[in-house]
Amino acid sequence: MSDIATSQPDGDAGRKKGRRISISFATGIVILIVSLILAFFPSAFAPYDPNVFDYNAILQAPSSAHLFGTDNFGRDMFSRVIHAYTLDMQIAVFATIVPAIVGTLIGAFVGYVGGITESVFGRIVDATITFPFLVLVIAIVSVLGPGLINMYIAVGIIDWVFYGRLTLGEIKVQKRLDYAAAGQVMGYRPSRIIFRHLLPNSMTPALVYWMTDMALCILLGSSLGYLGLGAQPPAAEWGVLIADGKNFMTSAWWISVFPGIAIVITGLGFSLLGDGITELLRTK
């Protein structure tokens, strides 16, 4: 979202020769594949029903029966963390996919047209980055009301700008190259020049940013969940789980700690994947 640095190349990454996939890239891929499997088939891995109360097993510490312990209703935390994959991976994809596509297209269009359109877009970008992203999302959610759908809308209203900006920059580079001019000379329609020629060559930064963005949206989704503005209990979502456990932190730390670890690992997976893609494209 407004985290520019994570999509920045490392100074030394380009020096690594060869097309060998780095260990961190491989780690990222593995994390994401596992996360996706868990998101689609949580029941295959969760030993208990995540929402069933068991008053005989309240606030139990991690054990072989309950790997991550149980909460104050006796719900199995391992099962709840696993089931939360569905919702949190959904947040990562649903919150970002529309702004990613719309933003990229708008960026391409603005870059192709240039002129006044571009300066207007520039103003929009300037003003958007002036709003603290989270504050703006919270403000929008507060107007629309809490809930995931409203969070997606709030993110979508702002997030497309970042994709637009990245694609615009790349399109401007591509436009200076000969083939775009050649297309114009040959009388191709603008849409053909944009879709067939400019866009495929300009999507890389947006693609890499998408990975970062999904990681950030998991953080955002869980933050809103924690604040009670995102996913609503009793839905299993990591932020909600952490909020559930916060009053028991001194007596039953496991309720909040394990969902947090899941967030960190998943976020790491997306970041490593983004870095890996950057590196792969650079050595090409």
Binding site: Y226, S256, G260, G267
Partner: peptide, 18 residues
């Protein structure tokens, strides 16, 4: 730091607080 970057603020806060 990469791990730090993937940690939500409220989670870090909660851990430090406790």
């Amino acid at each position: 730091f990469q791990v730090g970057l993937s940690m939500p603020v409220f989670y870090v806060g909660l851990l430090l607080l406790i």
